[in-house]
Each structure stands twice: as structure tokens, then as C-alpha cells.
Amino acid sequence: MAIEAVDLTKVYKTGTRANDGITLAVRRGEVCGLLGPNGAGKSTFVQQVLGLMKPTSGQVRIFGIDAARKPDSVKRLIGYLPQTAFAMRDLLTDEAMYFTGRLKGLSHAGAIEQRGALLRSFALEEVSRQAISTLSGGMQRSVGFAMALLGKPPLLVLDEPTNDLDPLRRRAVWDAIRSAVTQEGAACLLVTHNVLEAEHVVDRVALINAGKVVAQGTPGALKEHVGDSIRLGVWLRDGVTLTEAQEVRLSQLGVLRRPRPQQLTLLVRPEGVGATVDVVLREIGPAALADFHVATASLEDVYVELVGRGIQETEQSQSEDGTLTEPAAGSAGPGSSELPELVGAGVRGE
């Protein structure tokens, strides 16, 4: 097992409970996506995996080594890409890669060899003699990712690896992760907000919210949380707006979301698709539609359903009595028999 967290809890000195009994396993040869909203406890979990933070209780083992007790041993096994700045930004790209390799224990020849291969893989040869700080955000991200791969660590911990990357570089990153996992048997803990993209790369997903794992499993298994729901995506033409009354009527059909002013999605039961399409066309009118499609539910729908509901209920609990409480047991998505109760509260932005 690459990562084995058991009942991991972290309470800061301020009393903030960042992790609350996280139990999670990541195996060799798999990519595990760690998804969750800001402040969910993802970064705290990552710090504990890296051996940079002691848990208040519970344990996290990296390839069987207790990360809190033997952080130095654990660091040798991990390639880490932080979400924000990394060091050595005033060094030339090839220097930073060489020294990172050396600090990870590679020999002089090994560091040069791996650096050359990674510079080629990520099309960084042209900028190899430029200071990292002078590169574009996307290039810097690519360099950081390449630095994480140096030394071919058996565990990759990547925090938003495709932020700022163009589609080609993004694909190169996903390919490299897939290659490290399938060909070299590495494990990867992938922290991301990009749920749609992650769906194509991850083998398993852990959804974390308010310091707890609210769901984990394969993307397919998680989609069962929203049952066999169907997603209707609607894009409005520029200048077209919905009235409040129209939004209320549409929200009565299923879980309505408004990711952007000109976009809305409706998650509905399969048997209601035909009727919903009719209502949508009648309410909005074909002339106001820029695009319209019907698809099965995505991992993003699961995320919004599980995490979004948690946020909403937490906010409700906070507003009612001023204290944080657990989300109500038994609340369910559109795939469950309790669908009508959820639908009325389904209107929200992202």
C-alpha cells in the first residue's frame, strides 16, 4: 500500500479541526484523486502524507513507514508538486532540475540523464537556459511537475498539476502520470479542483469535505450516488436571461445549477427526461438556446451533489444555531426516493 491513512485527525492549536477521522488507502499502480472544496482539509492531508505535519491522532503510513515518526524516510519515496511557489525560481531551468535530482539522491550522471529525458518529454529544451522566474505560469508549472518526477519516486503527490497549462501540456502531464503509474508501478495522489479532467485520469476518487471523506471509490461507483440520473446542459444565447419565476419552475424538474450566467444544467431522473426537455423548450424557447445536450451524469455532478450539499447544509446549520453540525443523515440525490425534497433546494451557483 502506498498510502494508508487510518482515522487521521488534525486539530490545530486554534481549535480548528482540519482532518476528522480520515481513512484512505492508495495502492501502487493507481491514481487516486483527492477532490474537495477550498478549506476541506486536502492540504492538511497532503502535509501529513509528506511527513511535514504530525496528526493529532490516527496514523498515516507511506509504504508501511509511519510518516510522523520517520519523515526523512518518507520524503525519499515521494515526488511532490506544491500548488503554489516552489523554490529555486532564480535558477536556470536545467540547473534547478539538476540540483533537485541531486538533492533527491541521484548521481551526477543520473541527474543529467533524467533531466534530459524530462526536458524532452515536456518540450522544455528551449527554456532550459532561462531562469524559471522568467517563464510563463504554465511553463513554470511544467518545470515543477518535471522536478517532481525526478528520481522516479514510487509515490507522486501532485497538487493541481495542470493549473495554467495549455491543452497540449495538460495532456503531456496526464500521459506522464499514467505512464508512471502503469509502467513504473508508482502510486499517485492527485489533488485537484478540475473534476471533469480528473475523471479521465483517476482510478479512484476520494471526496473530502469539512475534514471528512464523504465518499470514495471508482468514478463509476461514485456515480451511483446520483443513480442513473441524466444531465441536461443548456447554453443560452448572449443577452438572454431567465426570470426568477422561470428558474423556480425549472428547479422543480430536477437539481438545477447555474455554473455561468449563460449556462444551466439540470440533473433529472431518466423517466422524466422527455417531459423536462419539453418544459425547457417551452420555458426558454428554441430561439434563445445557443446549445442544448443530454448526457449521463459526470463525476462533477457527483462532486456537486455530495460536496455541494454538504456545504449547503453546513451553511444552513451554521445560520440556524451558529454552530457547525453534521449534515443530516439520509439526505439523498436525485437517484434516490427522496428526490423531491432535494429538488426544491437545488438552485445554486458554483
Binding site: L52, K75, I78, P82, F86, L103, K104
Partner: peptide, 16 residues
Amino acid sequence: QQRRTGAIQYYAALPI
């Protein structure tokens, strides 16, 4: 500055 930018954390995550 290294503490502020998180650079020190990057070094901390290396086996040094």
C-alpha cells in the same frame, strides 16, 4: 520570504 512564499516548504519536502 521563503516562509511567506512556501519555498521553505518545498525544501522541507525534499530528503535533505
